[in-house]
């Protein structure tokens, strides 16, 4: 009863090659024609395809509100939103609100950014600065800054001060962390090269350390701006009498979902605009970067 176990040895090539529709049999060799990428012609330009998703979504939203599946009290339809945006624009309310909010962000960012960058430079360049500043900053950054709103209100009332303070607090940390890391991660071979070129300490900081930290600093700026908008939304919940947050709060009182959507869109567009600004800055200041590919 000795049974012999047999196995079939398949040619390795047969295992590896999954037959595809383009496979051609020629003299026993499994071949595949490599088509040039351009041959698989794209009927639509890329941006059209990318835009189709959002457009479809808006279309769906429009259909839902026209057919009554989405009642106006829940969410106003796109056409209502557009007409109220136009109305708010014509009365000048919208521009005034945007201006007030933008100024809040810019002042907050200017204060927070200055403090963050200054502390990062001190901590990055000097050992004593690192010892005094870094541990404190690393500890403080774990605190969600919006949790300080009650304290800020107690300290500075419900006017502009707590709103700007909140934005400044939020923006200081991302800039601090990234500038500090940028300074500390400067390529040591370039520092050495600078020393052999006879650069003084000040020249080394100016020509080597700070330029090397710039990419990191701009990443920090982008983070900071993201946090700035978030802080603005929180801050404008504090009894605002002007600005986009005020517009929203008023709309809430009267169940004007169209105005609320307009405000949301404005927040998004402002965020986009600022992001675009930073990317333009990157294009100008980081053109030297090997990794930079956009033109």
């Amino acid at each position: 009863m000795s049974s012999i176990a047999t196995i079939t040895i398949a040619p390795r090539a047969a295992e590896r090659h999954v037959p595809s529709e383009a496979a051609i049999q020629d003299a026993g060799l499994a071949k595949q024609r490599i088509e040039p990428a351009s041959a698989s012609a794209r009927a639509l330009p890329r941006w059209v395809r990318r835009a189709s998703g959002p457009i479809a979504l808006v279309l769906l939203w429009h259909i839902a509100s026209v057919t009554g599946a989405l009642p106006g009290e829940v969410l106003a339809g796109p056409s209502t939103v557009i007409s109220s945006a136009v109305k708010l624009f014509q009365t000048g309310e919208l521009q005034a609100a945007i201006w007030v909010s933008l100024v809040r962000v810019l002042i907050g960012l200017a204060i927070g950014g200055t403090v963050g960058v200054a502390l990062a430079v001190l901590a990055g360049l000097f050992r004593i600065g690192e010892d005094l500043i870094d541990a404190t900053m690393q500890m403080a950054r774990t605190l969600p800054h919006v949790a300080l709103i009650p304290l800020l209100i107690i300290w500075s009332g419900i006017g502009e001060a707590p709103k700007i303070a909140l934005i400044a607090l939020g923006t200081a940390f991302p800039l601090y962390l990234n500038v500090y890391a940028g300074i500390r991660n400067v390529d040591s071979t370039l520092i050495e090269a600078g020393r052999t070129l006879g650069l003084s300490r000040a020249a080394m900081i100016r020509h080597v350390v700070l330029p090397a930290a710039l990419p990191s600093a701009l990443v920090g700026l982008r983070y900071s701006l993201g946090v700035a908008w978030l802080s603005l939304v929180f801050g404008e919940q504090i009894n605002a009498t002007a600005g986009i947050g005020y517009l929203m709060a008023t709309a809430r009182e009267f169940f004007q979902t169209d105005v609320i959507v307009v405000c949301l869109v404005v927040y998004a567009l402002l965020g986009l605009a600022v992001d675009f600004t930073v990317r333009t800055l990157e294009k100008v200041f980081l053109a030297w970067r090997p990794a930079f590919s956009g033109t």
Binding site: L197, L199, A203, H207, P211, L214, W288
Partner: peptide, 15 residues
């Protein structure tokens, strides 16, 4: 070891 953020000629006279 050129400074990538300086144009070639500025690298040459750096320092």
């Amino acid at each position: 070891r050129l400074m990538p953020w300086k144009k070639v000629w500025r690298n040459v006279v750096l320092g």
